[in-house]
């Protein structure tokens, strides 16, 4: 069982969460060329090792999180709120990495 230390709720089993996907994908501007959208939507680094990914605490606080997890060992290296401003206003026990 993977345990994720939710900044809002504390440590919980991963069964409470829903996996989002690769958190490093950045979507281009709406009017960017189709090739850029193709790459963002369809191509993946598919990291073997530590990757940044999103999880949704869907059966808990329903907040989105950014998790650094090893895809071979399943070890979790860090958990951050996906939305820093939300974390600040809710006084989450760990501060955001970057301002909203």
């Amino acid at each position: 069982m993977i345990r994720i230390d939710c900044p809002y709720c504390g440590e919980r089993d991963h069964a409470e969460f829903s996996y989002g996907g690769d958190a490093t994908v950045e979507y281009p501007a709406l009017d960017a060329p189709a090739e850029e959208w193709h790459d963002a939507v369809f191509l993946r680094e598919n990291v073997r090792g530590v990757q940044r990914e999103t999880w949704h605490h869907v059966n808990g606080c329903r907040m989105w999180l950014i998790v650094e997890r090893d895809t071979v060992t399943h070890e979790i290296h860090s958990v951050q709120p996906a939305h820093g401003g939300m974390a600040r206003s809710l006084n989450a026990h760990r501060g955001p990495e970057k301002p909203e």
């Binding site: 069982m1 993977i2 089993d13 991963h14 069964a15 829903s18 996996y19 996907g21 690769d22 598919n46 073997r48 990757q51 990914e53 997890r69 895809t71 071979v72 060992t73 399943h74």
Partner: peptide
């Protein structure tokens, strides 16, 4: 198992 993984072992849920 719903999350990306290269581990050849499954999880309990």
């Amino acid at each position: 198992d719903w999350y990306k993984s290269y581990a050849q072992r499954g999880n309990l849920p």
